[in-house]
């Protein structure tokens, strides 16, 4: 840890340049000069990053580096925290998501989220998946809603396991099933982007493998941003990887390059296990 702080002070100055290729052509989301403050404390420093369409981008970094905070800016989940203040430009399809004209309800329908701990609603499995469609008024009748629930569960590979007990409480499912249900709930409103905040950290290895496979499949249709503690997971599921360190975006590159040939010294230290 001492080493990490020492090197940070040396290498990362107040103005810094993100290594690698943070910018893309025609991205899904564009993040420019973004700073995040909790009260007087700055959590994110001047981040510039593009998130590619139908790609999985993973965000890695040591604990407290701001990767979750950054992720939660992308669908304005930080709005619920009073002392949180966000500066800069965050664009979804060239539209500023912090614009006054944007309704946060609408935004979150377009940018869905899956959390660290599976958090199904304490309602039935069916109601969990149907909830988004209900509040956003997506279906016209019960038949359509049934169809939507079934499709979403099938896409998450959960249908076979739960089709006979849709009316049972979702909290009775196993952890892995619950997390897949949360993903099904998120994709049921067909968002454009899905944010995942360490979706596997509360799951066992087998459930993790299932969820990772699911992420891989979903990336065909959705843009996915995943925060993870596990470098192996980042390597397995993502096309691009962003490395955060103490609130700064140090390096962004293709995943294979980050793990085989990191450009920045801090990235190298992290992936070789010297900090973190």
């Amino acid at each position: 840890m001492n080493l990490a702080q020492h090197t940070t002070a040396e290498i990362v100055n107040e103005t810094y340049q993100t290594s690698g290729h943070p910018l893309l052509e025609d991205p899904k989301m564009r993040i420019r000069n973004t700073n995040v403050f909790y009260g007087a404390k700055q959590a994110i420093f001047d981040v510039n990053l593009d998130i590619g369409k139908n790609q999985v981008i993973s965000m890695i970094g040591p604990s407290g580096c701001g990767k979750s905070t950054f992720l939660r800016c992308l669908n304005r989940m930080n709005d619920t925290i009073d002392i949180c203040r966000i500066e800069g430009q965050l664009l979804l399809e060239e539209q500023d998501i912090y614009d006054k004209k944007i309704d946060v309800v609408e935004l979150r329908a377009r940018v869905g989220m899956v959390f660290q701990k599976p958090n199904p609603f304490p309602k039935s499995i069916y109601e969990n998946v149907a909830y988004g469609a209900r509040i956003h008024g997506l279906t016209d009748n019960k038949v359509q809603l049934d169809e939507l629930v079934e499709t979403s569960l099938i896409r998450c590979g959960l249908w076979k396991e739960v089709k006979d007990r849709l009316g049972e409480p979702a909290t009775g499912l196993s952890g892995g099933q619950q997390q897949r249900l949360c993903i099904a709930r998120a994709i049921a409103v067909n968002p454009e982007v899905i944010l995942m905040d360490e979706p596997c950290s509360a799951l066992d290895p087998i459930a993790t493998a299932t969820v990772e496979e699911l992420i891989h499949e979903l990336s065909e249709n959705f843009t996915i941003c995943i925060v993870t503690h596990s470098m192996q997971q980042a390597a397995r599921v993502s096309q691009r990887t962003a490395y955060f360190h103490l609130g700064k975006l140090i390096e962004v590159n293709d995943t294979s390059q980050v793990f085989t040939n990191p450009e920045h010294q801090l990235t190298e230290e992290y992936i070789t296990g010297r900090i973190g």
């Binding site: 946060v104 609408e106 979150r108 989220m113 958090n119 199904p120 909830y131």
Partner: peptide, 17 residues
């Protein structure tokens, strides 16, 4: 639990909902 609130907000539910 706050996780339930987060889940609802994450789904795009308004505060009232």
């Amino acid at each position: 639990p706050p996780s339930i609130r987060e889940a609802a907000y994450g789904m795009g539910a308004s505060k009232m909902q």
